[in-house]
Design a protein around this nucleic acid. Sequence first.
DNA 1: TGTAAACAAGGTTAATTAAGGTTAATGAGG
DNA 2: CCTCATTAACCTTAATTAACCTTGTTTACA
Lengths: 225, 225
Amino acid sequence: MTKILYVEDEPALGKIVKESLQSRNYEITMAEDGLAGLRAFESMQPDICILDIMLPKMDGYTLAEEIRKTQPKMPIIFLTAKSQLNDVLKGFKVGGNDYLKKPFSLEELIIRIENLLTLTSGQVSNAQEINFGKFKFLPLRYELKCPDNTFKRLSHKEAGILSLLLKHANSTLERKEILLKLWDDDSYFNSRNLDVYITKLRDYLKADPNVEIITIKGIGYYFSY
Amino acid sequence: MTKILYVEDEPALGKIVKESLQSRNYEITMAEDGLAGLRAFESMQPDICILDIMLPKMDGYTLAEEIRKTQPKMPIIFLTAKSQLNDVLKGFKVGGNDYLKKPFSLEELIIRIENLLTLTSGQVSNAQEINFGKFKFLPLRYELKCPDNTFKRLSHKEAGILSLLLKHANSTLERKEILLKLWDDDSYFNSRNLDVYITKLRDYLKADPNVEIITIKGIGYYFSY
DNA sequence: TGTAAACAAGGTTAATTAAGGTTAATGAGG
DNA sequence: CCTCATTAACCTTAATTAACCTTGTTTACA
């Protein structure tokens, strides 16, 4: 899924835009000032940034410069209420790829996001059922069909983690990605939780020894079957 | 098509909300101050009004009174900043109203629009009959036809919840949405009620084991058949 | 350079907290 | 007094936190 960092200090507008983008299957993280934006950028690794120009603590241009220090090719869309030519020019000088005047149209914003993204990211699996090893997983029903043909009902979190593992089957899935996707937060305060769920899933999956959740210490998990 | 009058003086927010509502097939007319809002109301005959409280020339409160002089039952949703909410509630408790704090969620707004419209038209659902599993639901008659061909008369709330579940069949229905639609309020004080109705519905529906209301803790329900 | 503390990351199990389920009692309105 | 909506009391289960254990990785020093 495409990850978007959106830095906006107007809560009313921000909430609506965030939600509209989410409903189009973007994964969106918000920050309300420049410094928070920079911190969010460092922890989330977005695919694209949408930055308001006038922001508390650090303006959008400066934020863009900071971002470009570590990710020189990061696509950035600037939003501004000021529609003066100077601002536009300054925005492109920093290397911003696009520029949108407020009030802007949501369709315009989405078109610009799509245009800027060179990544053709993988589709979200809305599959009815997924077979793996001797198991079958029904994501919409939160059910796991075991080798002995019994059904195990998974909780919301269990199903979410299993879905992620399956999406990244036979490749590595970062711990951080799971935490961000299921808890919106990858801080350690929030995190032993995940280990508990991994233990549970390993327990559910032990009926087929070829299905394994392999720990890659410091990185995440490798799901193999 | 449902006609909405939306009076909002914040252009950035206004444009986004207008567009989002249009994309959901509402016909929407905007005005940027109270007087323009009143003129628009007189010429367009909307089905519902969404009014910001703080408006130039005439505030939303006064505008609502003017509107009610000619259309006493016109459904009105007020948008207010949090700080003003108490004052507004104090003097104005006429039926057919709703309040939304800024920043608000677009989903919440849409739920409230639909809620107010169905309240004024008194309908649970406009379909004649809905088949699911071994059951048939007659929303207009509040009747459930069971696998054994007996009829069970449902109460208003029971029928409302079943309608919602059916509308979201085989996908998740948020608890919050049910509470907002049927109780106008998603606070916990108001809520064990819903659990009681879910228990009742599960009891009515137990005759077909393929029909299931699956709990997704912290989120809502998944209605599967 | 080998080995052992020290540390960091994760595993496991159990306890706690919070969300929801169930059943019965109460209340409000015809 | 009916019926439906709401509240209350108590029970069950999911999510989280805590405590303690295991294993891999550094680092320090002989």
